[in-house]
Design a protein around this nucleic acid. Structure first.
Length: 470
RNA sequence: GGCUAGGUGGCAGAAUGGUCAUGCAGCGGCCUGCAAAGCCGUCUAUGCCGGUUCGAUUCCGACCCUAGCCUCCA
């Protein structure tokens, strides 16, 4: 039984899909006008794990994540760089896929782009006008009138009066209410535009998700997710549009991931305090380190990005890989108490920090069994560890290979790793000779030399020497 | 100002009406030529003040502090 915290109402609820055994999820994707930053990555990783875990739990998951490929920022950036909009967005969509693929995020089952669904947005807008929820403003934009939708504010727990009182929005003469939002924006000369009953223009942001979600999941579906910053007004507006038009319930469960922070401040483009996924990939041994870092705190809470945090994630994950050294992945796993604890943690609103703690405990049990010569038990625990790690998208790397990996940024600074690897083997061979001669002084000098380069030697029983990078 | 989260050991981070996970760091031991890795053991915490209770870190109230939303934002 999987329980999920529903942002609508704020309580944990049992997941009861509309259709038994099948779950439909819509997650708000990125606006493609720049490289993805770590805040975007967090959201992607969180919902990737939600999806993977549901699949693991036996659900057939229909996972939809949109791409916003038309909006003011895109138009401005493309114009600045003197690229046609389409080329510009195609470029950043490709870059986005490159980053998310590197992070091991599964591609969505459907990844609709807003510009392919403009007709649907026109239709929905017309429907909202016909039903009295929207109006054509004096400036030619089509606006949604929030006062007409009684449940407005339900998701974010706000009352219209409170919102108006604290409104920082400029008073727009065209709006009947300062909180009204644009469904259809009339275009200025030179801007991308689609013909509509209200003249040439482009869709507003919120209407995109309403249309694309309905297109793939219907007017009622199981889970809608996204970053906490989308809760208001984006998701609130989606609800207002979709529910007003269809009379249906739209998403039954809302999930919002917390922010990624830098020095405890939200990472965002506007603050300029962001690190791109690409930058982060340069400073980790393997993308799994980033995944581990993200999952090491609960998805609803904040998580602070720093090199120290990434190092901690690396240390934890390296510890798990160390336990898996010399273990083959073809051994059969027997579900033990660790699997039960892991499952209980994940079932309880995807408590990944607790689930990871179980992985670490499992690794220790594995080491303990090995230290006591119980190899059969160790093998079984290793297989179990791989299985559980795999559910979260981990442990896809060969253990020895993992330990010898270097951080791209460091490798770049130190020169080619291929050369370095050959040198390491050479030095290890020479040290072995010295040790045979009992010339420990010479042997230790070699070991120190390698340690200087971040390479740690380990003499394993039987006379062999393995190495790993710090 | 309104609203929403949250304040746990040196760091990160779960959980919980009574013995407070897990990892890193520290300390002691085993192992090792010495190390490393691993194993065993071990130290350190629940913002502040009241209340409820046999007992609160956990429930309630006030206060302080932090972050976020109220404008585009994962």
């Amino acid at each position: 039984m999987i329980r999920i915290h529903n942002s609508m109402g704020g309580a944990k609820e049992a997941l009861q899909p509309l259709e038994p055994g099948r779950v439909g999820i819509y997650v708000c994707g990125d606006t493609v006008y720049d490289l993805a930053h770590m805040g975007h990555a967090r959201s992607k990783i969180v919902f990737d794990v939600v999806r993977r875990y549901l699949m693991h739990s036996g659900y057939e998951v229909n996972f939809v994540r949109n791409i916003t490929d038309i909006d003011d920022k895109i138009i401005r950036r493309a114009a600045e760089q003197q690229h046609p909009i389409k080329d510009f967005t195609e470029h950043y969509i490709a870059e986005m896929h490159r980053d998310y693929d590197a992070l091991g995020i599964l591609r969505p089952d459907h990844e609709p782009r807003a510009t392919d669904y403009v007709q649907g947005m026109i239709d929905l807008t017309a429907d909202l006008i016909a039903k009295g929820y929207a109006y054509v403003a004096t400036n030619g934009d089509v606006m949604y009138g929030v006062a007409g939708f009684a449940a407005y504010g339900q998701l974010s727990g706000r009352r219209l009066a409170d919102l108006r009182a604290g409104a920082r929005v400029e008073i727009d003469e065209a709006k009947r209410d300062p909180l009204d939002f644009v469904l259809w924006k009339h275009s200025k000369p030179g801007e991308p535009a689609w013909p509509s009953p209200w003249g040439f223009g482009r869709p507003g942001w919120h209407i995109e998700c309403s249309v694309m979600a309905e297109e793939f999941l219907g007017t009622r579906f199981d889970i809608h997710g996204g970053g906490l910053d989308l809760k208001f007004p984006h998701h609130e507006n989606e609800i207002a549009q979709s529910c007003a038009a269809s009379g249906d319930t739209f998403a039954r469960l809302w999930m919002h991931n917390g922010f990624l922070t830098i020095d405890d401040e939200k990472m965002s483009k506007s603050l300029g305090n962001f690190f791109t996924v690409r930058e982060a990939l340069q400073v980790v041994r393997d993308p799994e380190v980033i995944r581990y870092f993200v999952l090491s705190s609960h998805y609803r809470g904040p998580i602070n990005y720093s090199l120290e945090q990434l190092d901690q994630a690396d240390a934890a994950l390296t510890g798990i890989y160390t336990a898996l050294r010399g273990r083959h992945s073809d051994e059969r796993a027997r579900a033990s108490e660790y699997t039960r604890a892991f499952t209980a943690a994940m079932d309880d609103d995807f408590n990944t920090p607790l689930a990871l703690a179980e992985l670490k405990s499992l690794a220790r049990a594995l080491n303990f069994a090995h230290a006591n010569g119980r190899e059969e038990e160790a093998a079984s625990l290793a297989a179990e560890l791989r299985t559980l790690g795999g559910i979260l998208g981990f442990l896809g790397v060969d253990a020895e290979a993992w330990l010898q990996k270097s951080k791209p940024a460091q490798a770049l600074a130190a020169g080619s790793t291929a050369t370095a690897d050959a040198e390491i083997d050479e030095l290890i061979a020479r040290r072995l000779e010295a040790r045979k001669r009992k010339d420990f002084g010479a042997a230790d000098r070699i070991r120190d030399e390698l340690a200087q380069a971040g390479v740690i030697l380990e003499d394993v029983p039987g006379g062999a020497t393995t190495w790993r990078r710090k």
